[in-house]
C-alpha cells in the first residue's frame, strides 16, 4: 500500500492513516458490492423488484431501532462501559407494541392508541435519561434495568400471549402502496430523511455530536450536556414506539420476542460506523449496515443455504470489519 502512496505520504503518519481509513471504507463498500453482485448473479429472483421490496420491508423495523441506537451512540459516545448504549430499545418496542394492541382492542380510537404506543416508548426513554443523567448510573446498567422492566411489563400486559389486532390503518401500512413503493418503505424513507436532517444538517445535530464526542469540552463550551443525553434516550424511545406500530402492522399482532432484536440492532449500529469517514455513528452508515444485514439473510435464503449460518456469517462480518477499521483508527491514548 505504501508503494501506491508515494514519498509524499510516507513522512506523515497522519496521511498514511487517512489513506488506510479511506482504503477500509472503500473496502467495506466494495465487499458489500461484491456480495450483492454475487447474490444478483447466483441467487435466482434476488434482483426482482418484489424481492428487493420485501427485503426493505423486512429491514424497516431493524433500521428504525438501529436509528434509535445510533442517536444514542452519537449523543453519548460509543465507549461501552462509561459511554452510552441503549440496551432497552428492542424491549421498549415490545412494550409499546403491547400497549398499542391492548388499547386498540379495548376500543380506543386508533390515533390515540398509536400516540399511546409512541408515548410509552418515549416514557421508557425518559426513564433511561433520568437514570443516566440524574442518578448517574452507567448507561449500560441503567438501560439494562429499564430493559428488564419493559420486558416484564410487556409480559404482564399480554399475559405471554400473541395478541392480535387489525384495523384499516394497519392493513394500509401492511399492503398499501404509493407510487409503486410500499407504505412501510415510505415510512422508512420519510423517517430517514427526517433523522438525517436532524442529525447531520442542523445545529442541533452538531451539538449532539459534540456532547457525545467529548462531554467535558462540550460542557466547557456551554452546551447543555444533560439535555442532549435526555434527548438521545427519548429519541431512541420514539424510534422504538414507531417501530412497535410497524411490527404490529407487519404481524397483525403484538408478539413476544421483540426484545431479541437487541443484538442485531447493536450490530447494525456498530457496523454502520465503518461507512463514515472518521468511523463515527451516522444515519447513512446505519441504514447501509442494516439493509445489508437484511440482504445477506435474504440472499442466503434464496441460495438455499441453511439459515443456521446467517448469524455466524453476521458475526464473522462484524469481526472482519472491526478488525480492519481498528488498524485504520488513530491509536487510543485514553
Amino acid at each position: 500500500m505504501s508503494g501506491v502512496t508515494g514519498p509524499a505520504a510516507a513522512n506523515s503518519s497522519m496521511n498514511r492513516r487517512a489513506l488506510a481509513a479511506l482504503f477500509v471504507r472503500l473496502g467495506a463498500f466494495a465487499a458489500i458490492g461484491i456480495i450483492l453482485l454475487y447474490f444478483a448473479i447466483y441467487a435466482r429472483g434476488f434482483t426482482s423488484s418484489y424481492n428487493l421490496q420485501n427485503v426493505v420491508e423486512q429491514s424497516v423495523i431493524l433500521t428504525m431501532l438501529a436509528y434509535g441506537m445510533t442517536v444514542v451512540f452519537i449523543g453519548t459516545g460509543t465507549d461501552v462501559q462509561q459511554g452510552g448504549v441503549d440496551l432497552s430499545v428492542a424491549a421498549n418496542a415490545g412494550l409499546a407494541g403491547a400497549v398499542f394492541v391492548t388499547l386498540l382492542n379495548l376500543g380506543l380510537p386508533e390515533p390515540l392508541a398509536i400516540l399511546a404506543a409512541i408515548f410509552s416508548g418515549m416514557a421508557m426513554g425518559l426513564l433511561n435519561g433520568i437514570a443516566v443523567v440524574l442518578f448517574r448510573i452507567i448507561p449500560l446498567l441503567a438501560t439494562l434495568a429499564v430493559m428488564n422492566i419493559a420486558t416484564g411489563l410487556e409480559l404482564t400486559i399480554t399475559g405471554n400471549n400473541v395478541v392480535g389486532a387489525s384495523s384499516e390503518f394497519l392493513t394500509m401500512l401492511q399492503f398499501g402502496r404509493f407510487l409503486g413503493i410500499s407504505a412501510l418503505a415510505w415510512v422508512l424513507i420519510v423517517f430517514t430523511i427526517f433523522v438525517t436532517i436532524l442529525v447531520h444538517y442542523s445545529p442541533f445535530g452538531v451539538r449532539l455530536y459534540a456532547v457525545g464526542g467529548f462531554p467535558e469540552a462540550a460542557r466547557a463550551a456551554g452546551l447543555n450536556v444533560g439535555f442532549n443525553i435526555y434527548f438521545s434516550y427519548i429519541f431512541s424511545g420514539l424510534c422504538a414506539g414507531i417501530a412497535a406500530v410497524l411490527i404490529v402492522s407487519r404481524l397483525s399482532a403484538s408478539t413476544l420476542g421483540t426484545g431479541l432484536h437487541l443484538l442485531p440492532v447493536l450490530a447494525a449500529a456498530l457496523l454502520g460506523t465503518v461507512f463514515s469517514r472518521r468511523f463515527v455513528p451516522t444515519i447513512g452508515g446505519t441504514l447501509i449496515a442494516s439493509l445489508f444485514v437484511g440482504f445477506l439473510a435474504n440472499g442466503f435464503q434464496l441460495l438455499g443455504i441453511s439459515s443456521y449460518w446467517v448469524s455466524g456469517v453476521q458475526g464473522a462480518l462484524i469481526l472482519l470489519v472491526v478488525a480492519l477499521t481498528s488498524f485504520a483508527k488513530p491509536a487510543e491514548g485514553g
Binding site: 447493536l266 456498530l270 446467517v310 469481526l319
Partner: peptide
C-alpha cells in the same frame, strides 16, 4: 469481539 463471538456461537 465478544459480540461477534456471540453471533458465531449461536450459529
Amino acid at each position: 469481539a465478544t459480540l461477534g463471538v456471540l453471533f458465531i456461537g449461536s450459529s
